[in-house]
């Protein structure tokens, strides 16, 4: 039905005598409404319907349940929980350390992506494969491995002990875990963009007398900036919610090294559902804001790549 253009005389008209069908695509006029482009491939309604249903059942309704639960406790209950000194300290720690970890990942990730894209050297493929390990390794495994490595009797713990630094069971340990899990995000978002840069531009800059550093700052950096910031935001978002790799190495001292996700778990175990929900909602709002930011960054990156 409706796969062929209708002659003008047959245009269906509504009661107000306006054509019911959009004529914006003169070649393909269809009975489908204007919110989607017509397609001959069957199954649109079925697949979209099932997708929406399953998404609602598994993701949207449970999350809505969380927000509704928080709403039943009211604003004062919410803010009483969030402004409690221990909760505030946990939120500050989670967001602050995640920000630092993402910043460290920005530098390390850019360096690794640069080396992987620009240079050819032995074991390059192995190095590249290793980047994905934090994605694939279960967080609990990463957690206990990092802990025994950075504990005072572990290899790295001993090494840092020589300069008087204690890593495991302090906020520094949390930072190590967050850097570990966030590294692939920056590498994998920057890599394809870096590979796409036309090196002729760089050569032109060099011919015109630009130093290598100036070329990097004026030509390469602007091109990869959206990808860098996207990777930064992804690493940050992941770090804020991270639980498994952190709790082993953190020491979990209230007010000092207790992250917000752990505090949710503690409140749940104490049957303080109201407080657990309030902390979760505060974190959820921050995550949604981050997700929105990431989407905007990606759109900006696509625009940059398209025009530049």
């Amino acid at each position: 039905m409706g796969r062929f253009p209708l002659p003008a005389a047959h245009v269906l008209r509504g009661e107000d005598n306006k054509p019911l069908l959009s004529r914006s695509h003169p070649a393909v006029t269809s009975f489908t409404s204007s919110w989607r482009k017509p397609s001959v491939i069957p199954g649109f309604g079925l697949t979209l319907g099932l997708t929406l249903m399953w998404l609602s059942l598994i993701v949207l309704i449970p999350l809505a349940g969380l927000v509704l639960k928080a709403a039943t406790f009211g604003f004062s209950g919410f803010f009483d929980t969030i402004l409690n000194a221990r909760v505030l300290a946990a939120l500050k720690l989670s967001f602050g350390l995640s920000l630092i970890a993402a910043a460290v990942n920005l530098v390390l990730g850019l360096l690794i992506a640069w080396v992987l894209v620009r240079y050819d050297f032995p074991l390059r493929r192995s190095l590249s494969a290793m980047v994905d390990i934090p994605f694939a390794l279960p967080t609990a495994v990463a957690g206990i491995a990092l802990t025994s490595l950075y504990a005072p009797n572990g290899a790295m713990g001993w090494l840092f002990g020589l300069i008087g630094l204690k890593i495991a069971f302090t906020p520094l340990g949390i930072l190590v875990a967050l850097i570990f899990i966030g590294l692939p995000f920056v590498v994998r978002t920057v890599e394809p963009v870096l590979a796409d840069i036309d090196q002729a531009t760089e050569e032109a800059a060099a011919c015109l007398g630009a130093t290598r550093l100036a070329t990097f700052r004026r030509i390469i950096l602007p091109a990869i900036l959206p990808a860098l910031l996207t990777g930064f935001a992804l690493a940050f978002a992941r770090a804020v919610g991270e639980y498994g790799s952190v709790i082993f190495i953190a020491g979990n001292l209230p007010m000092v090294s207790e992250i917000a996700p752990l505090l949710i778990v503690i409140k749940l175990e104490e049957f303080e559902y109201e407080q657990a929900t309030a902390i979760a909602v505060a974190m959820l709002i921050a995550s949604l804001a981050l997700l929105f930011l990431i989407n905007m960054l990606q759109a900006w990156g696509r625009k940059r790549q398209g025009t530049g």
């Binding site: 993701v59 309704i61 449970p62 999350l63 349940g65 969380l66 639960k69 967080t139 978002a237 992941r238 804020v240 919610g241 991270e242 639980y243 498994g244 996700p261 752990l262 949710i264 778990v265 749940l268 559902y273 657990a276 929900t277 979760a280 974190m283 959820l284 995550s287 949604l288 981050l290 997700l291 990431i294």
Partner: peptide, 17 residues
């Protein structure tokens, strides 16, 4: 969305349901 929600919150929503 599940990528940006903390795993702990993912568990919590089902406890609340």
């Amino acid at each position: 969305l599940p990528f940006s929600v903390s795993p702990v919150i993912a568990g919590l929503v089902f406890v609340l349901l």
